[in-house]
Design a protein around this nucleic acid. Structure first.
Lengths: 292, 292
DNA sequence: AAAATTTTGTAAATAAATTGACAAAGCAAT
DNA sequence: ATTGCTTTGTCAATTTATTTACAAAATTTT
C-alpha cells in the first residue's frame, strides 16, 4: 500500500478513521488536536503524549500507508512546508497554468524565498537609520556599484536625485572613483553596492572613504562583502536564483523601499521639488497621455 | 547558558548572527530560508540539506544556547505550535518583527502582490518566444529604456552581453536613438522599456523600428504603453507600490528570468564565453576571494 | 463463560541519530 | 612561505529511536 500523495495526512486520517482501532484513534485524535506539530517529535514522545505505546503509533503510520514512522514524519514535514510556503505562490495558480518546472515558476519561487528570508534577516532599525542618513540634506551622497550591481546603483541615484540635492553616481570606471571622493568630506555618505564576487576596487574605495570619515552604507549579499567591516550600516539580502548568477531583485526591492522612506522623511520639500522637476522634464522630454 | 524563552529562534539567530562562523551561517541561512521546517528533520538530514556536517549543526545549536540538538528542535516545535495556533502572527512568517505598518512590510506586501498578479497575467508562451528571439545570435539586439527604466535596460544589456554578441544599450539621450537604428536591419530586435508616463521619444523610436522591420519586444506596465500596438511581443507587469512612483522590481524579475532562459538556450556557447569573460574581467578588475 | 480473535503492550534487536574526540583544512598574521 | 589560530569534518562511542517478535490483555463470537 502506498500513501496517496494527493491527500494531506489529516484528510488521509479522516478517510481511514473507521479502519482505526481504539488506541489508534487516540493517536489520530491527539495528532489532529495539535496538527501537525504533535506528530513531529520522536515516536517515543509522540506515543507518550497520546498515552499509548510506540508500536501502536508505528502500526497506525503503517495503516495509513507509510513504510515506517520516519516516512510518516517526512510526509508531515513536506506538507507543513507547503502550507507555510508563501501563500501567494502556493494558492494563486496561474490562469495560463505554466508547468511547475517552467523557468518563470522556478524563478518566482526562488525570488519569493529570497524576499521573505531577506526580510526576516534585515534589521528595520538599520533600514530606518539608513533612510535618515539619505534624507539628511546636510550630507552629500555618492553612490557606486560593481560591474553587475552598477544598474542598481544607477537606479538609486536616479531616484534620489529627484528627492534631494548633492547625489552623485560614480562612473563605472574604478580609476576615477578616488577623484570623486575629494568632493566628499566627514559626515557625508557613500552608498556602496558589492555582491560576490567582491571587487577589490570597491574595497579600496571603502578604505579611502573610511579614512576621510565618510559614512559607508553597504548593500551586499548574505555572505557579506569584506567592506562590511568598514560600513556604518550594512543591508544584506539573499540573492540566489536558479541561474548562472545572482539576483538583484531583492536588492532593488530594498532600494525602492528606502527611496520611499526618504520620500516620507522629506515630504514637504519633495513635493515642491518633484513638481519643478516634472516641469523640467516635460520641457526636455515629451510625454504621452498620463494614465489613470 | 540558557536559551532566552522570550525570543523566537529566528530572532535569536538574527541577534547572534554576527557570532556565527561561515558554515554556521550557512545552516542559519538554510533554516531561515525555509523556517522552521528545515530544522525539524533529523540532525543528519538537516546537515545534509545545508551541505554541512552534523557537528556543525550541533555546534550552532549549542552556540544559540541549547543543550543539544533535540532541545533545539523541541524549541522549534514549541514555537511552531504557538505560531500555528495564532493566525495573527501568520504574516510574520515571511516578514520580520517590524511593525505591520513599517514601510518595509508595506512594500513587501505590495511587491508580492505585484509579482503574483504579474505572473498570472504573463503568457509563458510569449516569454518563451522572447527568450528565443534574444538567444538567436543571427539577430542583433538593441536595448533602450525611458528616464526611470533606463537602469533596468542597462541591467538587461550588461547581462546579455555576457551571453552573446551584438547587444547594444542605447544611451539615455533620445536624440541619438535614431542613429543607433541604422545598425539594425530587418529581423533584428529592439527591446524597449516603457512604463508610465510613456515617453513620446520611445514611441517615435518604435515607429521607426517598425518601418525597418525590426522586431520590438516591449516591457511595460498593466496600462500598456502605446508602443504595444507595434510590438511583436509585450510583457506587461504590475508596478504599483505605496510610494510616489512605480516599482521596477517585477520588471527586473522578468528580465532576470529571461536572461536565465537565454542562458539555458545557449548553454554550450555560454559556458565557454563566460569563462573567457571572467578571465578578461579578472585582468581588468581585481576580485577578492570568491565565496562558495 | 470459554474459545477464538483482535488489540495492545513489553522487551529485545536493530537501526539510526546524537555527541565527543581529534585530525585535517582553512585563514590570518607575519 | 611559515606559523599559529580558528573552523570544519571524519570517525567512533554513546545514546536514543525505531522496529520486530511475542506475550498479555481486551474484545468478540460462540
Amino acid at each position: 500500500m502506498v500513501a496517496n500523495t494527493q491527500l494531506t495526512i489529516s484528510e488521509l486520517i479522516r478517510s481511514r478513521y473507521s479502519d482505526l482501532t481504539r488506541k489508534e484513534r487516540k493517536f489520530a485524535d491527539t495528532l489532529m488536536a495539535n496538527y501537525p506539530v504533535a506528530g513531529l517529535a520522536s515516536i517515543t514522545e509522540v506515543a507518550a503524549n497520546a498515552n499509548i505505546s510506540t508500536p501502536t503509533v508505528l502500526r497506525t503510520a503503517k495503516k495509513l500507508g507509510f513504510k515506517g514512522f520516519p516516512g510518516f514524519q517526512a510526509a508531515l514535514r513536506k506538507e507543513l512546508k507547503q502550507t507555510l510556503a508563501n501563500p501567494i505562490v502556493k494558492h494563486e495558480r496561474w490562469a495560463n497554468a505554466a508547468p511547475e518546472e517552467h523557468i518563470l515558476n522556478q524563478f518566482a519561487i526562488a525570488t519569493m524565498e529570497n524576499l521573505s528570508s531577506s526580510l526576516r534577516q534585515i534589521d528595520h532599525h538599520t533600514f530606518d537609520k539608513v533612510s535618515e542618513l539619505l534624507a539628511d540634506e546636510n550630507r552629500k551622497i555618492a553612490i557606486v556599484g560593481g560591474r553587475l550591481s552598477h544598474s542598481v546603483a544607477d537606479y538609486l541615484a536616479t531616484h534620489l536625485q529627484v528627492l534631494r540635492d548633492d547625489v552623485t553616481l560614480l562612473s563605472s570606471s574604478p580609476s576615477r572613483w578616488p577623484h570623486h571622493l575629494l568632493n566628499l568630506s566627514k559626515g557625508d555618505v557613500l552608498v556602496l553596492f558589492d555582491v560576490r564576487r567582491y571587487e577589490a576596487n570597491l574595497s579600496d574605495l571603502a578604505k579611502l572613504a573610511e579614512q576621510r570619515g565618510i559614512k559607508i552604507v553597504l548593500f551586499t549579499d548574505q555572505w557579506m562583502s569584506p567592506v562590511s567591516t568598514r560600513a556604518a550600516h550594512t543591508l544584506a539580502v539573499r540573492i540566489e536564483v536558479p541561474s548562472g548568477w545572482d539576483s538583484a531583485v531583492v536588492t532593488l526591492f530594498i532600494v525602492e523601499a528606502l527611496v520611499a522612506a526618504v520620500e516620507t522623511h522629506r515630504w514637504p520639500q519633495t513635493r515642491a521639488r518633484m513638481k519643478d522637476l516634472e516641469k523640467l522634464f516635460d520641457d526636455t522630454r515629451r510625454f504621452l497621455k498620463k494614465p489613470e
